[in-house]
Design a protein around this nucleic acid. Structure first.
Ligand SMILES: [Mn+2]
Ligand SMILES: [Mn+2]
Ligand SMILES: [Zn+2]
Ligand SMILES: [Zn+2]
Lengths: 135, 135
DNA sequence: CACATATATTGTAATAATTACAATATTGCA
DNA sequence: TGCAATATTGTAATTATTACAATATATGTG
């Protein structure tokens, strides 16, 4: 938990209790790609007064400072990811899980380069289908 | 316009006036990846009685029948694409345009295969950054 | 053609995720 | 400790989308 405190300070984010807890949750659920709602529900058990707005705000600042990133695959909600390294995802159409996949992609490493004259800042790749637990 | 009529019939979709017009719009704007709102606004000029719900319904059936596909990149809205071949996109953070990019991706052709044990049905790739008109 | 039935369209209301905003509380520093 | 800046909270507003019921249209049959 002290490590999380330091991480926040390093990024110039005031380490409030709520922020510590959100980042702690993200660190412990790094394979989950949780929604705001999931984070809120979990933290509300420990912090009954926490507000959904605070979770939104907190994730917003985390994204700004590069601590997490938003994954928009489902189209209905943002999923959050503490792994900010560019990597690919798999969305299971049955259970809705979003899973990291480790695939070699020819497009990785193109950051800063041009495609068809457009300057690349982010590279996103994902699959949709049926995850191995649901097959 | 007769070609569009035939396309609808081939897919087993009753070729109503509204559906003809939506598909016509999509065919004429294949580089635009329009939103429901954009399609609705445009068609409303010619068909003042058209309903937003109809546009939603129509695009829904088109997706079911494989005539168009939905592109979820922005996170706030679905963009529609009449090009149902798996291809990659570029989202410009400045102007919001979504542009097709023709890049060789090592993941193409993996449909039906497995990644980490998960069965792939769709492959999606996109970049975010600044498009060439906005650089 | 008239009618019956199925399907499509429309308008409105409901839902769900997110953002805006203002009041209150907390933090870090002088 | 006390002040100013910042964070949190609760609520209301916004936006995209879906649900639903009433009306309209299309299609097939006698
Ligand atoms: Mn991930
Ligand atoms: Mn496209
Ligand atoms: Zn699954
Ligand atoms: Zn642009």
């Amino acid at each position: 938990m002290e490590k999380i405190n330091i991480t926040l300070k390093e990024k110039g984010i005031k380490p409030t209790y709520q922020r510590l807890k959100v980042l702690d949750y993200m660190s412990k659920n790094l394979r989950n790609h949780p929604t705001v709602e999931m984070i809120y529900e979990e933290l509300a058990k420990e912090i009954p007064t926490i507000s959904l707005t605070t979770v939104y705000n907190t994730l917003g600042t985390f994204i700004e400072k590069g601590l997490v990133c938003g994954v928009t695959i489902t189209g209905t909600e943002v999923r959050y990811d503490i792994n900010t390294e560019s990597h690919h995802h798999f969305l299971c159409k049955k259970c809705g899980d979003i899973i990291d996949v480790d695939v070699p992609c020819s497009l990785s490493g193109k950051k800063g380069e041009l495609v068809d004259g457009h300057k690349i800042e982010e590279i996103h790749g994902y699959f949709k289908g049926t995850c191995r637990s649901c097959i």
